[in-house]
């Protein structure tokens, strides 16, 4: 243990003398004035309990603070004039302002549908009763996106009618930050509507010997890749568009061809609705509804007891079976649902 400084020791006194700002010249030079002590002097004005000097900023910290004051300042507050990304200089020397990630030119911030555009789509379908496929073709918006827009617009309108809370200032701000389209006539097509998924079977190189005189078409190519591969023509989301283009190529007047296209899509939609209705009626016929006295409706469905399979664990089986334990509590069993209806 190092010797302690007793009360009679002169050292503290000397230290106290040192701390005195009006230092007399007669102080013995045995107590050197070292840096920490002087640092404590300045720091003691702000922080009475600490005698150590504040840590200096590291180089990255300094650079960061400098950046905040100079070129980083423009990112702090958005002025409401369109998107503001980091961007990058392209090979031609122009600044690409659609890239949020300077190292990745393959990802660009693509425009979204503005609120006005979504309202237009909703009106076309719900007010003007246009078929979904026709709306999709008219605005060049994916049919799944059209369905999503309609679904959320309906929720929005319901919430508005019920006077529920909505994030309107947030939505207005975000819309100003994003590139957006209004679906007017002069804009470029919004997105590909007839794109097809690339099947992994078609990603390999094949050598198929065919005679020179043979016309080797798309459907022949599909067959060559595998028996179950469909040709692109039957994978199209809106095959009616091909008919429309064929008519135009044959010399039919565009307006007439378009009318034919709309009629064809409307017919397809009606057929789909009819099939859905038939299905729901069939399902209803399989059910027996019984109203009880307690405002409760019981629905009985016919099930097959053999659906559970030999081990009683088949997915389509109904009910709990005696002697067959659940394994949903077993260690490592995943409880996260795979779908929500």
């Amino acid at each position: 243990m190092p010797p302690r400084i007793g009360s009679s020791s002169s050292l503290p006194k000397k230290l106290l003398n040192c701390l005195d700002t009006t230092l007399p010249s007669s102080v013995p030079s045995s107590v050197p004035l070292r840096r920490p002590v002087t640092a404590a002097l300045t720091a003691s004005q702000q922080c009475l309990f600490s005698t150590s000097a504040p840590r200096e900023a590291t180089k990255p910290q300094r650079l960061f603070r400098e950046w905040l004051k100079t070129s980083g300042k423009k990112f702090q507050h958005h002025d409401g004039n369109g998107p503001l990304y980091i961007g990058r200089l392209t090979d031609e020397g122009e600044e690409n302002r659609t890239m949020p990630f300077p190292s990745n030119p393959a990802y660009v911030s693509e425009p979204v549908l503005s609120d006005a555009a979504r309202e237009t789509i909703w009106e076309c379908v719900m007010v003007n009763k246009m078929p979904l496929k026709a709306v999709s073709a008219q605005f060049s918006v994916d049919i799944r996106r059209i369905a999503a827009v309609l679904r959320m617009k309906e929720i929005e309108k319901r919430m508005e009618a019920a006077n529920m809370q909505m994030a309107i200032p947030y939505a207005n701000t975000v819309e100003k930050m994003l590139p957006r389209v209004n679906l007017t006539k002069n804009e470029r097509p919004f997105e590909p509507i007839n794109d097809i998924h690339v099947h992994s079977y078609t990603m390999q190189q094949l050598f198929v010997p065919v005679s020179e005189s043979r016309e080797f078409t798309r459907s022949d190519a599909a067959k060559a890749f595998g028996g179950h591969i469909l040709p692109p023509d039957s994978k199209m989301r809106i095959p009616e568009l091909i008919t429309l283009e064929k008519d135009i190529a044959k010399g039919v007047e565009p307006r007439v061809a378009e009318r034919k296209f709309i009629a064809a899509t409307a017919k397809h939609e009606a057929e789909f609705a009819r099939r859905l209705k038939i299905e729901s009626i069939k399902e209803e016929q399989n059910k027996i509804r019984v109203n009880s006295s307690r405002n409760v409706e019981f629905r009985f469905e016919k099930v097959n007891v053999d659906d559970v399979g030999r081990d009683g664990r088949a997915r389509s089986g109904v009910g709990w079976r005696y002697g067959v334990p659940f394994n949903d509590r077993r260690r490592g069993a995943v409880k996260i649902p795979t779908s929500v209806e």
Partner: peptide, 27 residues
């Protein structure tokens, strides 16, 4: 809006978002 939000504002194409009702569809 919080500061430094705009450089991160982009919506990938596989989502369709309605910011008013804070809902989105995974297309």
């Amino acid at each position: 809006p919080r500061p430094f939000m705009a450089p991160f504002a982009f919506i990938p194409r596989y989502l369709e978002v309605n910011h008013k009702i804070c809902a989105a569809v995974y297309l």
